[in-house]
Structure formats: C-alpha cells, structure tokens
C-alpha cells in the first residue's frame, strides 16, 4: 500500500483472505480511491462464481464415447469410418527395430515401464497419434511421438543434449492440471542422447503436457517440457 493504491491487496480482499487490520485498511482506501474501487468492482463478483465450481473436477472425456460418436457420424454420413491399417501394420513391423534402438541409445529402467505388447492384437482404432517437440532450459531438446496403445499411450522419445555420460535417471510424466501419470524412466548415453520407448497408462487426450524430470532434482524442476 506504499504506492498509495491497494490493487495488489484486492485479490486477498475479495477472497476474504486478508488479516482483519489489512482488510480494514483496504476498505478505508476503497472508500476514497475511485481507481482502486473500480478495480475492486471488476473482481468482486468472482467469489460467488467460484463458489459454484467448488468440488468440481473436470473428468477425462470418455474414450468409448469418442469412438461411438465418430461411428455414428460416419454412419449418418452414409459411409464407414476410414481405417488406417497400413499405419499400424507399419508400426508393428518397426516396433522390434525401435526397441532395439532404444536398448542401444539409452538404458530404459525397469520400474514404471510397461512392457510393450508384441503382436498382442490390434490397438484401439482411430485414436490419432502425433508428435510434439520438447524444450528445456539446459539446452536439451527432444521429440516425442505419441501413439495410442491397448494400455494407454506408447511414448517414443528422442532426446539430445543431456549432460553426457552421467548416471542421472530421468522420468517422463504425462500430465494435466492436478494429475500426472509416469511413463517410466531412462538414462542418457555417453553422448547425452537417448531414444526410448515407454508406455503410460494415460490415454491420448487425457493429458496436456509431457514433462521430463531428473529424479535427483528437487520437485518441480523440469529438464524438458512440451505441450501435448
């Protein structure tokens, strides 16, 4: 309040989160300051609205509905949904090669990594995979290819620029607000690169970002992040 205005106190004021003395001081200032009073008026209705949202947690959109919906739309169009067998056939053919590359380029650690299905039937059809770029403050970069699988998402991760030759263990998280699912852990090779194939139980569309952390770092320290 030293600047003569109380704008930065107004968040706590409208949420009734100031100490009694602070609240009285803000109220007295609002009575004589049109500028702060106008700002207060813009925020004053928010607590009532927030009260309507208390306890509400937005669930994931049910995957089963998505598939039924697309089938219904295709049916009403008078056709069938386009299938993409070639893509999955190609994925199955190259899966063994990709796993072999992962074993060479980066050591995938056991815990948290779900074994990939090998010829265990068709993955859920029609959930489109995609790739995204991850960037980090330490100069590391990565590309992730996300593919739907029977158990969640198959994450192919190519990483460059990690500290070379270290023993650091990195963990991949698929996250949205208030929710996180691990896709597993890996180590970089002697050149600071890694290529790994991990699996998370989170399904495509259930998370908003991919985050790579170093397990030895304090919580909240990111090595790489990318918006899904």
């Amino acid at each position: 309040m030293s600047s003569g205005h109380v704008r930065e106190e107004l968040g706590g004021y409208v949420l009734d989160a100031l100490e009694p003395g602070e609240r009285d001081a803000v109220a007295a200032h609002l009575a004589r300051c049109a500028e702060c009073s106008a700002e207060h008026a813009r925020l004053a209705g928010l607590p009532a609205l927030l009260g309507q949202a208390e306890g509400l947690k937005i669930p994931a959109a049910p995957t089963v509905v998505e598939e039924r919906l697309l089938d219904r739309v295709a049916s009403e169009r008078g056709g069938r949904r386009a299938r993409r067998p070639r893509r999955w056939a190609a994925a199955r053919l190259t899966r063994g090669r990709a796993l072999a590359a992962g074993a060479l380029a980066g050591a995938v650690l056991g815990a948290g990594v779900t074994a990939l299905a090998t010829g265990g039937g068709e993955p859920p059809a029609q959930v489109a995979g995609y790739s995204l770029a991850l960037t980090g403050a330490e100069g590391a970069t990565a590309r992730a290819q996300l593919e739907p699988g029977r158990e969640g998402t198959e994450v192919h991760l190519w990483v460059k620029g990690l500290p070379p030759g270290g023993e650091a263990v990195y963990e991949v998280h698929c996250e949205r607000s208030g929710w996180s699912a691990s896709a597993g852990t890996f180590r970089a090779d002697a050149r600071g690169n890694a290529y790994v194939v991990l699996t998370t139980a989170a399904r495509l569309g259930e998370y908003e970002r991919i985050r790579v952390v170093r397990r030895s770092d304090p919580p909240g320290t990111n090595v790489l992040t990318g918006e899904a």
């Binding site: 937005i58 669930p59 919906l69 697309l70 739309v73 056709g79 489109a128």
Partner: peptide
C-alpha cells in the same frame, strides 16, 4: 471434414467438462 478430425478435436476439448456436467 470426412476424416472426423474436427469432431475428435472438439470432443477432446469439451467432452470432459460436458460429461462431468451431465454425470453430476
């Protein structure tokens, strides 16, 4: 959009909250 991609995107954007609303 005959690929269904627009519908899929729209559903993924709003399906969760609308499902929550309906479930509630």
């Amino acid at each position: 959009d005959e690929t269904g991609a627009s519908m899929r995107r729209l559903y993924r954007l709003y399906g969760g909250e609308l499902f929550g609303f309906a479930l509630n």
